[in-house]
Design a protein around this nucleic acid. Sequence first.
DNA 1: CTGGTAACGATATAAAATACGGTTTATAAT
DNA 2: ATTATAAACCGTATTTTATATCGTTACCAG
Lengths: 157, 157
Amino acid sequence: MAHKHDHGACIDKAVADAERICAERGSRFTELRRLILTMIWQNHKAVKAYDLLDQLANEGGSAKPPTVYRALDFLMDEGLVHKIESLNAYVGCPHPGDQHISQFLICDKCENVEEVATDALDAAVTAAAEEATFKIHRQTVELRGLCKACVSEEQAA
Amino acid sequence: MAHKHDHGACIDKAVADAERICAERGSRFTELRRLILTMIWQNHKAVKAYDLLDQLANEGGSAKPPTVYRALDFLMDEGLVHKIESLNAYVGCPHPGDQHISQFLICDKCENVEEVATDALDAAVTAAAEEATFKIHRQTVELRGLCKACVSEEQAA
DNA sequence: CTGGTAACGATATAAAATACGGTTTATAAT
DNA sequence: ATTATAAACCGTATTTTATATCGTTACCAG
């Protein structure tokens, strides 16, 4: 993500997607929500709620925790943002709208979060649940380690 | 778990396992650690750190948060207990000692947590990581939903 | 333009976890 | 046995993460 990645395009896409999705559903994509979604998309790392709060404060506002958490709850309800449970942090969803199951590759070094959608992994999860006669409502799949870029870097050293 | 499950045996086994494992490794399974492990094993639900703290207080002691967290950290380091990230709660490991990857089925109704070790799921996780050239250090796989017993119960109703 | 609902703001508090410093206790080395 | 050392423990304070509650404002539907 560090090199040759036009991240501005990511942000624009995320905002455009959000606008489209909220319009379709009749939910309100307010200024605050747009602002917070944009902040989350500043990079591909997961962002802490209180960091968002600090950023809001720096921009002159005097936001309180509930303001941020309400916006995050909205964005999560709309599938625009995911919570990374193992970090207590929040990351933008790169393909909102599609019904999808989220699995994350989280680099412990560069901290980038990649959302993957692997059919094989989905199938395995489903199979494991079926074997146990378990009816899945939600799932948290978070793989922590080193991303491709950081592995290469380590090998180079 | 509710019916015909001799849970006392689970507790005894967990404590015996812990004793054996700590003895093997030369780590100290102190009274406090034994007590907290036993509390965690009172049932198959995940337990909150502050509930343990309250229990300790009820038993006459005057424990502070660090006491509980230190014990939990020890138990986790030894692989005797796992943290459920999506609940901020802790659950006993049913087969400590084996090197293993933990995956959890968490019932949203009865709150029981079942730890599963599915080769197919392991393989799928590994494959997904390999495909992304990602080097896994740790993983969090938590499936939330309804367990077998609670599904049957719903269907009966 | 008015009545209801959703969004926002502010205060307070709850819940989860850690930093740090001092004391005790177990174990290993003498 | 005695002492050095490291681990465990304890308590205070604080940080981090999140929610409850209540009053106000803004949207939009009838």
